[in-house]
Design a binder for these strands. Structure first.
Lengths: 75, 75
DNA sequence: ACCAAAAGTAAAATAAACTTTACATTTTGA
DNA sequence: TCAAAATGTAAAGTTTATTTTACTTTTGGT
């Protein structure tokens, strides 16, 4: 059981919103012109997306950035 | 007259919102724990902030990320 | 006009995002 | 159950964000 590197700064609802739209990580990646691995990494909190990506993702889901991403307490 | 490097991806209302709150770049920087130069660079579109920074900035102003930052057309 | 504070800029260094390639594991549906 | 599709992961490489230090320019008030 290994500890994968994650960034403790935000939580996100991408997986849930993807499920609602019924689209894959690859679909989402294609729609915002990033690699599938980038979506996977953001979705699983391996790193924090740029504001541009966050806004594009939120826009696909018809939500605000704050409805998709939540800042961790303690900052 | 030199062309300073800017990133064409977003516009922002930081300067305006700072004026409303009457705080300096240095004040804002301090409140979100980044350097003053980082605020200056974001405010003058030298680069795109991370989603975490964008959210912290928006939160200071009591607005959503979308109310502070606007994606450029054409993406 | 002068001074101080604020804002602009720049360069070098470091950290972090993002891509590409490639393969392993899990899930899904026929 | 079998195959295909979707997801997870990793490493190496590139680009971009962010820091630090330091200096210049602009702005506001007296």
């Amino acid at each position: 059981m290994v500890n994968y590197r994650t960034v403790e700064a935000m939580r996100n609802r991408i997986r849930i919103e993807r499920a609602i739209l019924d689209i894959t990580q690859a679909d989402l990646a294609e729609r915002i012109h990033v690699s599938r691995q980038t979506i996977n990494a953001i979705e699983s909190n391996k790193y924090v997306p740029s504001a541009v990506l966050a806004m594009k993702i939120a826009r696909i889901f018809g939500k605000t950035v704050e409805e998709i991403f939540e800042l961790d307490e303690n900052d």
